[in-house]
Nucleic acid binder design. Structure first.
Length: 309
DNA sequence: ACCCAGGAGTTTG
DNA sequence: CAAACTCATGGG
């Protein structure tokens, strides 16, 4: 199946390090992941073509919901030219050069995005992506496709029932582990002190708070609800809102965005909170994309290295 | 050995 | 309210 696309760089979007999920499995220039289409697990391969995105499902699923899912995940319906002209109006046209075709990489599963974002706090990108993979391998459902293993992300109820740590696994971590080894506790996945946060958040999402309700809330209400979850602070909440629920008003402020903004406005010396307020006022519903483009441009132009320390 | 990682929670000023 | 301190743990 081909989906016509304009202004979409699949590779850039995959590798841009958005916290919704680890990048998909790269195979020969294409990207593979297990998606749930109408309740049915389906390995899918996407490949960039000429003005099209080639989509190959590897099990029998209906076309229309598959197409909608792909369009949602890569935000293909978004009129990105509107963003380009918006950025020009705001004096940020530099960011377009290095990020053209970059779109939101939205979560295929909002719960995965929530846990993934909690795991990302004060943690290197390498480490939290590996942690999410370990969690999937430990408690997700495995689907074999031509010898490749794909895992679903476990449900809130499943993760809520997982031990935080067991002596057994802490010892086995020292040994060389086979690819399909399944840990029996969260700590062994490398989430460290965040293990109780992940467990309690999973419990709340399985017993008290229906994730689908968050979709219907506006940005502010959803943010307040998310901030009640353990392990979710202002930055993580905005990541979840942006990548998990496509609330594009969200402008996640991490240390890098703060450095970038203070570099852009040297006379201001923003605090994290002030940046969020500034972004809400200046960027409105474009805020999430502005953050994405700012960060990517800083990374590609070498500005990030300059701002280190 | 030492320091940091795309912060959050808790305690203190 | 804001600043300071602590929190696991893999990787430079």
């Amino acid at each position: 199946m081909d989906i016509p696309v304009r202004e979409f760089d699949l590779e850039l979007t995959q590798e841009s390090g958005q916290t919704s999920q680890p990048p998909w499995k790269r195979v020969d220039g294409a990207f593979r992941e297990l998606l749930i289409i109408g309740g049915v697990p389906c390995p899918v391969e996407v490949r960039a073509g000429d003005e099209v995105l080639r989509v190959n499902p590897y099990s029998d699923v209906p076309r229309k919901p598959l197409k909608k899912k792909i369009e949602y995940i890569f935000d293909l319906k978004f009129e990105i030219e509107d963003l380009y002209s918006f950025l020009e109006d705001k004096g940020l046209s530099d960011t377009i050069q290095s990020s053209r075709g970059l779109r939101l990489f939205l979560a295929k599963d909002p719960f995965e995005c929530i846990i993934s974002s909690i795991a990302s706090a004060n943690c290197s990108i390498k480490r939290w992506t590996r942690a999410v993979d370990d969690i999937k391998r430990g408690w997700g459902d495995c689907h074999l496709f031509r010898g490749e293993r794909f895992y679903t992300f476990p449900s809130p109820a499943t993760l809520a029932g997982v031990e935080e740590e067991s002596l057994e696994d802490l010892q086995r971590r020292e040994d060389k582990l086979p690819d399909d080894f399944r840990f029996t506790d969260l700590r062994s996945c490398g989430v460290g002190y965040r293990a109780p946060y992940i467990r309690e958040t999973s419990r709340i999402l399985s017993e008290e708070l229906d994730i689908s309700k968050i979709h219907r809330m506006d940005y502010q209400d959803a943010r307040e609800v998310l901030l009640e979850l353990p392990g979710v602070g202002p930055k993580v909440a905005d990541c979840i809102l942006l990548y998990g629920f496509r609330k594009t008003e969200a402008f996640p402020v991490d240390v890098w965005v703060r450095r970038i903004m203070n570099h852009l406005y040297p006379d201001r010396n923003f605090s994290a909170r002030e940046i969020a307020e500034f972004a809400a006022r200046e960027y409105g519903e474009m805020a999430g994309y502005v953050q994405l483009y700012l960060f990517n441009h800083a990374r590609r132009s070498g500005l990030l290295e300059k701002l280190r320390g």
